[in-house]
């Protein structure tokens, strides 16, 4: 589903965010990306959603080289990727319903279909009764779930999450991860960047670890725990 081949990213000014990163996440897989702040997690996700372009190497989604994608085509790529952010990126002057409906309106769904799909997505994250509220009136966990509803409302085959549990307590974090597991079981590939090691430790998922822009481990959580001293070096 996502394939990185010897990808390096150097920002203007010489800061090297990623060095020769290679990995492959298969369709229907759920994986975590971890590492300290500044290790290159966000940069890696930005290369997938084409918010940044790699300096060297290839990024492929479903076998398509993203280098071939022109800037005019980028919006269509993003419609296939559900993205979730630590800062939610919600429109605070619109209702929860309008926020979740945004991707559908952009794609030109009819009003009836939009309503149906938005209600289904809100139902999945357990916020159907808050549809008419403004996001400002919701708690942090609820806002995050609105963001998730928006990311999955048009059923993308790939979900990317950047620190989705960043501001949440462990119990709420677990609920969010369980939501992702549900989508994963429905066949969606899920790729989550987080520095919440405690969260990952409780689960058996493939975990990729970045350090100073280099991929240092790639494997199941248990394998990674055995080499955990490597992460702390």
């Amino acid at each position: 589903m996502i394939k990185f081949e010897q990808v390096s990213k150097t920002y203007p000014g010489g800061q090297q965010a990623l060095r020769q990163v290679s990995f492959h996440i298969k369709p229907g897989e759920m994986a975590f990306l971890t590492g300290h702040s500044g290790a290159g997690k966000s940069t890696l996700l930005k290369l997938i959603s084409i918010m940044e372009r790699p300096t060297v190497g290839r990024v492929l989604i479903n076998g398509h080289d993203l280098k071939q994608i022109t800037s005019r085509q980028i919006p269509y790529i993003r419609r296939d990727i559900g993205m979730i952010f630590q800062s939610h990126q919600l429109l605070m002057d619109k209702t929860v319903f309008d926020n979740v409906a945004l991707p559908l309106i952009i794609e030109g769904y009819s009003r009836r279909e939009t309503t149906k799909k938005v209600h289904a997505a809100l139902d999945m994250v357990g916020l159907l009764n808050k549809a008419k509220n403004s996001p400002v009136t919701l708690s942090g966990g609820e806002q995050q779930r609105v963001g998730i509803a928006r990311a999955v409302v048009n059923r993308p085959p790939l979900l990317l999450a950047d620190e989705p549990t960043g501001n949440l307590d462990p119990k709420l974090s677990m609920e969010i991860i369980e939501l992702f597991e549900n989508f994963n079981q429905a066949g969606v590939s899920v790729f989550i960047a987080t520095h919440d090691l405690g969260l990952i430790a409780r689960m058996r998922y493939r975990t990729l670890t970045l350090k100073n822009g280099q991929m240092i481990t790639d494997g199941l959580t248990e394998d990674w725990q055995e080499d955990s001293d490597e992460f702390t070096v």
């Binding site: 993003r78 952010f85 429109l91 945004l102 952009i106």
Partner: peptide, 16 residues
């Protein structure tokens, strides 16, 4: 500005 950024993130074209 922030609204436009969000719209671009969820796949809105410039024309839209």
């Amino acid at each position: 500005r922030s609204e436009i950024q969000v719209m671009k993130l969820v796949g809105a074209t410039d024309a839209f």
